[in-house]
Write a protein that binds this DNA or RNA. Sequence first.
RNA 1: UGUCCCAUGGUGUAAUGGUAACACAGCAGAUUUUGGUUCUGUCGUUUCAAGUUCGAAUCUUGAUGGGACAACCA
Length: 559
Amino acid sequence: MEINAQTTEKVQKNFLEEIIENDLKEGKVQSIQTRFPPEPNGYLHIGHAKSICINFGLARQYGGKTNLRFDDTNPVKEDTEYVDSIKEDIHWLGFDWAEEHYASDYFEQLYDWACELIKKGLAYVDDQTNDQIRENRGTVQTPGINSPFRDRSIEENLLLFEQMRQGKFNDGEKTLRAKIDMAHPNMHMRDPIMYRIIHAHHHRTGDKWCIYPMYDFAHGESDSIEKITHSICTLEFDIHRPLYDWFINALGIYPSHQYEFARLNITNTVMSKRKLLQLVKENYVAGWDDPRMPTICGLRRRGYTPESIRKFCEDIGVAKRDNLIDYSRLENALRDDLNKKANRVMAVLHPIKLIIDNYPENQTEELEAVNNPEDESKGKRKISFSRILYIEQDDFMENAPKKYFRMTIGQEVRLRYAYIVKCTSCEKDDNGNVVAVHCTYDPATRGGDTPDGRKIKGTIHWVDANNCINAKVNVFDRLFNAEKPDEVEEGKTFLDNLNPNSLTVLTDCKLEKSLLTAKPLDKFQFERLGYFSVDYDSTQENLIFNRTATLKDSWAKQK
RNA sequence: UGUCCCAUGGUGUAAUGGUAACACAGCAGAUUUUGGUUCUGUCGUUUCAAGUUCGAAUCUUGAUGGGACAACCA
């Protein structure tokens, strides 16, 4: 039965798998070669993770290879800082590339191919200004008009292009354009610019070049050089495909093919690099790796595991229709992973004192607690118990509803791994806030068992007030209040949808002592609360935890 | 008032002319020393219209809705 279910699941192929299997079957390709082509101008985000999982995953699945290629054709935006972070993030996600390339490594070849196109009468140097080019391109509804420089001789074009390379002209003075069709319904085919002049330092080629190829004249050609069989990208490049094919065809080079899938969108999240950059630059978040950011490094700092991100990417599938994935899908993948892996510990985030009036004043006990009920191999540990404990504010209610199973006067509750206690009274401050709760314990219930077999509905967590450690805990909420932060009314921006309460810092949290040696990125389940990960800034003296995700809470729903 | 892409439960994703299904979410119940986990059950779907066909989610045409395209960005 189970085998059957698995088999059916595997039979369900996405459209990329179908294309690949077909190409393999028909002998169109012997093996597949994909690539992941980031521009080093920003940090990778969860949308890139989808692309990474697709490109590396497909190659892995069909015994092919994946290259990492930096699409570094615009020196004014790119930087090695980004190159390093991108490589780190891909590795962290659990993938490794066959070859590492840079579009800039191909500049000489690209230059030669541009000359070849000139010689074939398929490219020309244009003297028009930026504005003129834009005006003469027409609009989506009206054809453009030919450049007055469109019919220069091949010799003149060759000379001018060489002079462009030599630095004889200023930025913007001239461009090299493909000669296609200024009336083409697809704007990208209206004599697209192949090269522009930029006198800028490039992170790899330094000052060697002052002309740089455009995306459209670099990407497909780089694919072709690397013999990429399946060049997989997002839907917005669909409209570029005719041009991708046109260049490859005009050059007569290895015919890579482009396929497009729908990019990932997640509720209450923005995914554009420009907007993420803005959040960082304008200090709406603490940096690219702020745990509220959908960046890979942000998710990592938040406590997400590579496995959970990969599982998420697998869960959401691949297709061509627009999608908006609920953020909870990501949390589900995380819970699913950490439920099996994270050790349980006890921690109180909003402490109030619980005083066990009939417990001996100077007594301390060591009680046994299970580290992970899902994994017996994780063993057990000892936790300290004495007369005064901390419990969660939420776990006491003076006037509780009928279905409240926790601490309320007259009701019995289990202290996890400790004793059954009966709540007797509470103390309040002048403002009427409960500051301490009193109870009595039943010595016969050590460990939390009920020898008489009586049923105890509620179990709450606690820490020993005399034997615990303090910590700071960052509690995160969605960064944006709106499900689609980009959809704003006139005069507003996505920034107006920012959630002012996306970060709550709790400074008075009480943790069981075993957490003292926790190291950055260590992950735990705080029993009944959620999954928490140690922050980079955490030290033994100043412990800092990030809440990755809460546990599912069916009580919260009932309220 | 252009061209191209897309349209299946609440959200995603399958079904490749032959019984519309799977996951998540929801709801109900069972289990439980985490109101967690696990298990069981349940709700609910082909945008519309016409055509082709014995038979259409699937093919055709049209409509409607969503998206992309007018950077010397990628």
